[in-house]
């Protein structure tokens, strides 16, 4: 009962903040709205009993990635742009197929799901606690886990080289 209220509240918040991200002319306003979106998403994750994923979302996304975004926006000192919402960039083919795809997704999401999802409708009792997810991460998914550390190392080196001041 109260879960339904919480779900609707956070769902509406998420969608509204996401729309604000896309529509906002000021980049900092968009970044702050995106942080709010991540917060609402973390709340939705907690409603889905995925505690570890929720707190990781706040630590990584809201606490680190968005700080990086805001840092870059401040460094580059961007001014607000006028947002023209009616045109999608690209030629007619891109615009047409984008519109078709979006219409299809909306139709599927709102009207067509009953035919496709017949099982997996009832929640199970598995809690996404840190012990459970950690155990899975370090036994079944150990190799991808170690590969991501290599990936992060490559990303660090790449970012440092890209953003370095050009050598005179």
């Amino acid at each position: 009962m109260i879960e339904a209220y919480l779900f609707y509240f956070f769902a509406v918040t998420t969608v509204l903040l996401a729309v604000t991200v896309v529509v906002q002319p000021n980049p900092i306003g968009a970044a702050v709205s995106l942080v709010g979106t991540f917060f609402s998403l973390a709340a939705l994750f907690v409603l889905l009993h995925a505690h570890f994923v929720a707190i990781m979302q706040i630590i990584l996304y809201a606490g680190a990635i968005m700080v990086l975004f805001i840092f870059v926006i401040m460094l580059l000192n961007l001014e607000p742009e006028k947002v023209k919402l009616r045109t999608i960039a690209g030629n007619r083919l891109v615009q047409g197929s984008a519109a078709l795809y979006l219409a299809g997704v909306i139709a599927l999401a709102f009207f067509g799901w009953r035919q496709f999802f017949t099982q997996g409708v009832v929640a199970n009792e598995m809690e996404g606690t840190i012990e459970a997810v950690g155990k899975l991460l370090l036994t079944d998914y150990l190799v991808p886990f170690e590969m991501t550390s290599v990936l992060l190392l490559v990303a660090i080196i790449g970012a440092v080289i890209l953003a370095r001041k050009p050598v005179e």
Binding site: Y61, I65, L68, T148, L151, A155, G158, A159, L162, A163
Partner: peptide, 13 residues
Amino acid sequence: FIIAAAEAAVGLG
């Protein structure tokens, strides 16, 4: 999450 972080870092670079 991890891949998005790496992508954000390189993209911002």
